[in-house]
Structure formats: C-alpha cells, structure tokens
Amino acid sequence: MNSLRHAALLAASLSLVLLGGCKESPQVLDKKAGEYQGKVDTRPWEGPAYKGDKATWESDLRARSGNQNELRRMPD
C-alpha cells in the first residue's frame, strides 16, 4: 500500500508542476495486473450517517426495501 500511496503523491506533485490548472487527474504510474489500482473506499455504514454501525445500516436498508412492495399497503 505504501508504494501505491507514494506513487499517488508523486503523481500529485508532478501534476501540480506539469499540468498547473489543467484539472487533469494524476495518472497511475505503477500497476499490478489484475489488482485494483484505485483509491480505497469506505463501506457505506462507515460514513457520518452510521458511524460503523453495520447492523443498524443493514436493518434500515431492509426496512427501506419494504417500500418497494405495494402489497403491504394494498391488501386484497
């Protein structure tokens, strides 16, 4: 991970020098075939809304799913 981070930082500083305000993103210089080369992401329950509480997030999502089932509110 360190090398990746290093590369990203290097690219970042290079881009600042070379590209100035061009808004072009830094390119990945070092890549391992078949392995994700991008930035890491957080899990959805790790954001400000759930702060790592995965169980509540899952439960909320299940409850929310029920809104897609109109049969709950339209009995025969």
Binding site: R5, A8, L9, S25, P26, K39, V40, T42, E46
Partner: peptide, 14 residues
C-alpha cells in the same frame, strides 16, 4: 483506521 489520508491528499490535488 478511519478515512484514509491518502484519499484526502489525492483528492485535494485535483
């Protein structure tokens, strides 16, 4: 650990 600093750094550059 929480939100990676690499992510934040990179983001701020572009």
């Amino acid at each position: 650990g929480p939100a990676s600093s690499a992510q934040a750094d990179t983001a701020s550059t572009f």
